[in-house]
């Protein structure tokens, strides 16, 4: 009995000492700053989400800056547009330009809101590479079916990049598949879904998911002289209700600001690794204002 008491005492001491809640003073807190998040590409108007930074303890959506401000866009230093607010997906407010954007032009955004520091950011839509191709290894396509009737199509593909630049190899890719619905309503309609994929360990280790729905490729991926990416696309579907018809590839050529920003985000959120400092290219505020070039490819899946 006494032995048990001793053990209990030791255990309590151990537990009491091992975890402790503590209130700390973090690096001096600052008043909210304007946050701009915008990725833009050629042939589309500029859309920027403008919000405020928050203390880490705040819960819920950030307080959006009301449209009382003045947001302007300049091209190569010359005034181009005054942005206007418009409701976007999810009812969020975006500041939009009327002019469509072009590659190679240096766009600058300036936002002035009463009570906050004026913020400014600049970036360019890079010249996108065009010699990208996607090939399906038809002989290696496999299907796996589980007991619930879900069928999984595994489609090995090879993405080739033939005009790989010598430097600034900043790319991202996204995969989607198109499913033709064979159900009653609506008949013969189709639906596009984001595809998952498998790859070898090196490719997975050098690929980072982003909130944009595309996967960022580490620039070191191309270090060994390769010009291809081999993936196995995973397409789950229910054969009685739908049928995969096309595989869609979105290939993005990124500006450096786009690449560095998402690379710095890739180290956040894991207690196991040290986070990198967040890449910020907004002067006077936070966020990211960066351009990218987009290339879309579609390949029909064999029946």
């Amino acid at each position: 009995m006494q032995r048990h008491r001793l053990c209990l005492l030791l255990m309590l001491l151990f537990l009491a000492a091992c975890i402790r809640e503590e209130y700390i003073d973090l690096p001096a807190s600052e008043k909210p700053r304007i946050v701009i998040t915008s990725h833009f590409t050629a042939g589309e108007p500029l859309c920027a989400n403008i919000s405020l930074s928050q203390p880490i303890t705040s819960i819920g959506s950030p307080q959006e800056v009301l449209p009382a401000g003045d947001v302007t866009l300049a091209a190569d230093g010359i005034f181009l547009n005054r942005l206007f607010p418009e409701q976007g997906p999810g009812g969020r407010l975006f500041w939009k330009s009327r002019a469509l954007l072009k590659p190679g032009v240096r766009y600058s955004i300036t936002a002035r809101f009463p009570g906050y520091d004026t913020v400014q950011a600049s970036d360019t839509i890079p010249a996108g590479i065009s010699a990208v191709s996607m090939k399906i290894k038809k002989d290696s396509i496999r299907t796996v079916e589980d007991t619930t009737g879900l069928r999984i199509l595994r489609v090995p593909i090879v993405i080739s990049v033939n005009d790989l630049p010598a430097q600034r190899r900043y790319f991202a890719f996204g995969l989607q598949h198109e499913l033709r619905k064979s159900g009653p309503t609506p008949p013969n309609s189709s639906e596009t879904k984001v595809s998952g994929f498998l790859a070898n360990g090196r490719t997975l280790a050098l690929t980072y998911g982003t909130p944009e729905g595309v996967f960022l490729l580490n620039e070191n991926y191309w270090n060994d002289g390769r010009k291809t990416i081999e993936l196995e696309v995973v397409i789950p579907y229910r054969p009685n209700e739908e049928e995969p018809t096309r595989l869609l590839l979105e290939w993005r050529t990124l500006s450096e600001a786009y690449y560095r920003y998402h690379l710095s985000l890739a180290t956040q959120g894991s207690p196991l690794s040290d986070p990198d400092a967040f890449f910020n290219n907004i002067q006077g505020g936070y966020g990211n204002f960066s351009g990218f070039a987009r290339l879309r490819l579609a390949v029909a899946l064999p029946e």
């Binding site: 973090l26 690096p27 989400n49 880490i56 950030p62 997906p89 729905g213 040290d274 967040f278």
Partner: peptide
């Protein structure tokens, strides 16, 4: 020394497939 922050913001873009993500503002390592 460790890397901590007191600030955050929300990343959101106009793209259809984009998701909202909370970004911690680590000023420096």
């Amino acid at each position: 020394p460790i890397t901590l922050t007191a600030l955050k913001f929300q990343h959101q873009t106009h793209d259809d497939n984009a998701q909202v993500r909370e970004v911690l503002i680590y000023g420096s390592v």
